[in-house]
Design a protein around this nucleic acid. Structure first.
Lengths: 323, 323
DNA sequence: CTGAAAGCGCTAACAC
DNA sequence: GTGTTAGCGCTTTCAG
C-alpha cells in the first residue's frame, strides 16, 4: 500500500496487461493514441480497482498544481464571501482548485510566500499591496492579479472597478433629487470614492459636505454615522464607501430615530446581497464581481504582459435613497 | 531552471558545500543533527539563493499534502463565510492550508472525489451527506468530519450543535415573555429546530403555532413571513431557522408595516455577524463556530474512531424579541 | 500502437 | 555529523 493508501498506476497497468505509459495515454487522451481494445482494458482495470490519479505526483512531474491561491481579508464580509464564491466557481470551471487564505491581521508577504511554496499556478489578491509583498510576488515569480483594486504595483496585473466614477454617479443621483448636503463615510482624502464624492459636489458648485474616516466594517459605518448625526447640521444624505459601512450607518440612524430616506438618504458601495435585504433596502453602487473574477482568471492564465483592467460599476436604486 | 522556475535543494547543497540530506536535516530540524557551523552555511545559502522548498515534492514523498478540503454551499451567506474564515485560521494555526469548494447546486460526490484526488489530508463537509457521497468518502478513505451537523452517517465523524435544545430555549424565552402564538419558519417536520419549537409549545400546553417550510435564505425567510402575515391570526412571535431567514422575515415585516418587536417578536438561529446589525438587531441562537471548527480539526487529525460531538448553542438577546 | 526508463524535488533509511 | 541513494506516482521522450 502506498503512503496514501491507494491504488497506483502500476497496479492498473499490471491488471490491464499494459505498461504504465499506456495507462497515462488512455487517461490523459494523449500524447499518443491507444488502440480501442487496449483502451477498454485499461478503463476496465481503472474501474475495477477504483483507481484515482494522484494529483500531487502529477503536479510534481508537470510543474503545475492546477491550484490557485486567493488572499482575502475575511469572508465574513458578504461582499468578499461572494467574491470568494465566484472565484471558486470560475476556477472550478477551468479545472482549477482554490486555496484560500484569510489575511485580516496577518501579513501579506507571508501569505504570498506560503502560497508560492505550495506551488500555486497563480495568485489572486483582494487587498492592496505594500512594498514587501510586491517584492515577494516578484521574487517568487508566481503570476499574480490584484483583484478588486483599480491600481497595482508595476509588473502585477489588476482588475477593479472605477470607484471614482461610481461614487460620482451616486452623488450626482442624490444631488439630482434635491440633496444639498451629502456626507461621506469612508477612507481618507485621496481615495477614489472620496474623490468622486467631492468632485461631484464641486461640479455642482457645492462645498464639500462633512466626511468622516471610518473602517470598512459595520462598526466603522455605525460610528461614522453617529458622528455625522452629532453635527449641528446633520447631512440629508450620505454616501458610504462599502455596504458594510452603509449597514452600520443604517443601524445608527435607526437608533437615533432618523427616518431613512425621509430624514437621511443613504447610498452605499459594493452591491453585496446584504444590501438588498437591509431595512430599508440599500441603494448601492454594485461591482460586477462575476466579470471581475472571470477577467482576473483570464489575466492570470494568459502569458502576456501584466494588464490593468477597470470595469464600470452600476448604481442599483433601492429604497434607502428615496428615489 | 526547473519547471517551477525556481532554485532547488541541490543548488543550495552545492553552494553550501554539503549534501542534499544535510539541507533537509537543517530545514526540517531533523531527523539528524547538524553541526552549528554547517547549519549556518546552509542557512546562508538558502538566503542567498532565495530558496523555497517545493511543497509538492515534499507532499509526494511524505504522502501528506498539509492541505485540507472544505466543502460548503456558499460563502455569500455570512454564517458560512464566518465558518470558512475560522476554518482557515484554525487550519493555518496547525500549518495546514485550506482548499475550499463551494457546492450549492453541484454534487457532493464529485466534490469529495476531486478533493480526494488532490490528496487532501482531511475533509470538512458543512452539508448533510447522502448515500453516494458517504460511499465516496469511504472509498477514498480520506478522514472526514461533518461540520455544522449533529448527526453523520456511520463511520464519519461530526460536530454540530444541539439545535433541538437551542430552538426549545428560544421558544421558552418567547413564551416566558407572554407570547402565546409563536410561528416557525424553517425546515420540514422532523428537523431538530422544528422539533424543539413544537416541543416547547407542547410542554407549555399550547397547540402548535403556524409553521412554514422555507429555504435557508433571505428570500426563503421573506416569503415565509409574508405567508404568516397573510394568516387570519398572524402570530405575535416567530422563530426562524437561520439568521438569513430571520433577516428576510424582517424585511417582509417592515414592508407590511408590522413593528418588530411590538407587533411581532423575532428570534433567529446561527449568530452570524449580520444578525447584530439588522434592524432591529436580531435575537438569535448563536452557534459556537470557533469551538466547532477547532473540535472538527482535532477530530480530523486524531487517528481514533469517528466521533460525534455536539456543542451547546446560546441565546443572544437583542432588540428583535423585545426582551 | 506499446514499452522502458528517466526524472520532477524531496525525505530518510542506511552507510560511513 | 555527513553523504549516498532509493523511491513517492506520474508523464513523456525515445526505441521498438
Amino acid at each position: 500500500m502506498s503512503p496514501t493508501g491507494r491504488v497506483t498506476r502500476a497496479e492498473v497497468a499490471a491488471r490491464a496487461g499494459v505498461s504504465t505509459a499506456v495507462v497515462s495515454y488512455t487517461l490523459n487522451g494523449g500524447p499518443k493514441n491507444v488502440a480501442p481494445a487496449t483502451r477498454d482494458r485499461v478503463l476496465a482495470a481503472v474501474r475495477e480497482l477504483g483507481y484515482r490519479p494522484n494529483a500531487t505526483a502529477r503536479a510534481l512531474r508537470l510543474g503545475s498544481t492546477g491550484q490557485i491561491g486567493l488572499v482575502v481579508a475575511t469572508m465574513s464580509n458578504p461582499y468578499f464571501g461572494q467574491l470568494t464564491d465566484e472565484t471558486e466557481r470560475a476556477a472550478a470551471a477551468r479545472g482549477l482548485a482554490l486555496l484560500v487564505r484569510t489575511n485580516s491581521a496577518r501579513d501579506l508577504t507571508t501569505a504570498v510566500e506560503q502560497l508560492a511554496e505550495r506551488q500555486v499556478d497563480g495568485l489572486l489578491i483582494a487587498q492592496s499591496m505594500d512594498e514587501a509583498s510586491t517584492a515577494a510576488v516578484r521574487a517568487t515569480g508566481v503570476p499574480t492579479v490584484l483583484i478588486n483594486e483599480a491600481t497595482a504595483p508595476d509588473g502585477v496585473a489588476s482588475v477593479g472597478v472605477d470607484r471614482f466614477g461610481g461614487a460620482r454617479t451616486a452623488v450626482e443621483h442624490l444631488l439630482g433629487h434635491g440633496h444639498r448636503s451629502v456626507a461621506f463615510i469612508g477612507a481618507a482624502p485621496g481615495e477614489d470614492r472620496r474623490r468622486g464624492w467631492s468632485d461631484a459636489l464641486r461640479a455642482a458648485g457645492l462645498g464639500e459636505g462633512p466626511a468622516v474616516e471610518a473602517e470598512y466594517s459595520r462598526e466603522g459605518g455605525y460610528r461614522g454615522a453617529r458622528r455625522l448625526l452629532a453635527l449641528d447640521q446633520p447631512p440629508t444624505a450620505l454616501l458610504a464607501g462599502s455596504d458594510e459601512q452603509g449597514l452600520g450607518a443604517l443601524l445608527a440612524l435607526h437608533e437615533a430615530g432618523a427616518r431613512v430616506p425621509e430624514d437621511v438618504a443613504v447610498v452605499a458601495f459594493d452591491g453585496s446581497i446584504a444590501s438588498a435585504y437591509a431595512w430599508p433596502p440599500l441603494t448601492t453602487v454594485t461591482q460586477p464581481t462575476q466579470e471581475m473574477v472571470g477577467r482576473a482568471l483570464d489575466l492570470l492564465l494568459q502569458p502576456g504582459e501584466p494588464q490593468q483592467s477597470i470595469l464600470a460599476p452600476a448604481l442599483v436604486r433601492r429604497r434607502s435613497c428615496g428615489c
